[in-house]
Design a binder for these strands. Structure first.
Lengths: 190, 190
DNA sequence: CAACTACCTGAACAAGTGTTCCACAAGTTT
DNA sequence: AAACTTGTGGAACACTTGTTCAGGTAGTTG
């Protein structure tokens, strides 16, 4: 008979809390602001807790990227599921560069981190692969162009004097998804 | 009668050497690897030289971003001047994510830096503004979509397992610039 | 309730950081 | 050549960093 060890359960919870705190630190101060101590302070745990749960600072960043990537995938799936019209997509993009600006910045910093750590690449581009998989676009070239533009619009939105809003983004999104059947997947052959 | 002060000339030269060394450090180790000491070592100057020329480490990064942005603009203008066909653009992109991978990574790290330092934003998006200005696109929406996709293709190229080559990129670029008259500027009304 | 185990943490350390300071060298002007 | 300005660099300081480690604590088991 197996009983869940309360100690381990608590540990797992704290571990998650540390990862979440790390993401908040990145949102606020960037990857550069991540230190064992800053994370510990943010999470409200002792200084050595992050070291205890993650062998190295790198491991902590990696865990944070993996978790963030997972969340991003969930959000993307929601958009696709809801129909994926130009309006909805533009709305999501506008939110990412306005209300969720810090979060979006964090995501791209982790993105670039993957550029220097080959083992992180799969996680970083997970949402891309997943998008292709669930949408099964009729025109792969058009779809790849669309996905690239999404990244570009977000990045450029981050360095604009005033971030673009939904109405400004919509025509661009519309232009990009013409020929993509509004995300309607190609019929799968059985 | 004014004579150029040999001291100042030498100083200016060293200053530039330090900025160039900084960019090399970023290419190799990322922004995180930039310290007064690492830059000094790379540039072959004493430890305190970077501090002497740049009040703070931030100032050094800022100067590096400005310089890098300038170079990027020059390169973009060259592409436009040479005609800006899909083939040429795809060629440039392929080069950026292969031979010049480190440099491209560095550029995007500095890009994101601008996301957190409002005063750097104009420099970071300089190439975008310049592109719109010199191309004077007939269809602004299509052109903005194209510019966004360029950023996205580069970023996604950086986190691909194997970076895309010219031939893979060309169809996507072609798709994007259809309706842009191959970069031919709209006739300017006089 | 004692023995045990696994988790947890405060203090401490060595290494590296940004920056200051002052003596001095090189170049220019009088 | 003396006076002056500008550039230069080694030593040092106060501080923060990642990480270690030995002891302590909470949860589980017999």
């Amino acid at each position: 008979m197996q009983k869940v060890d309360g100690r381990k359960a608590r540990g797992e919870k704290k571990r998650r809390a540390i990862v979440e705190a790390t993401l908040r630190v990145i949102e606020r101060d960037g990857v550069a602001g991540v230190t064992h101590r800053s994370v510990a302070r943010e999470a409200g745990v002792p200084t050595t807790a992050p070291t205890y749960y993650f062998a190295t600072l790198d491991d902590l960043l990696i865990a944070t990227l993996l978790w963030s990537a997972e969340e991003l995938c969930d959000e993307m799936l929601k958009i696709v599921a809801s129909g994926g019209s130009a309006r909805e997509i533009a709305q999501s993009l506008a939110k990412a560069v306005n209300e969720n600006r810090g979060r979006t910045l964090a995501e791209y910093e982790l993105y670039l981190l993957a550029g220097r750590r080959p083992e992180l690449k799969p996680a970083a581009r997970r949402w891309l692969d997943l998008a292709v998989e669930v949408v099964r676009p009729a025109d792969p070239v058009a779809f790849r162009a669309f996905l690239a533009a999404v990244d570009g619009l977000l990045m450029q939105g981050l360095i604009a004097d005033v971030a673009p809003n939904e109405d400004e983004l919509e025509p661009i999104v519309s232009f990009l998804i013409r020929g993509c059947d509004d995300f309607t997947p190609a019929p799968r052959e059985e």
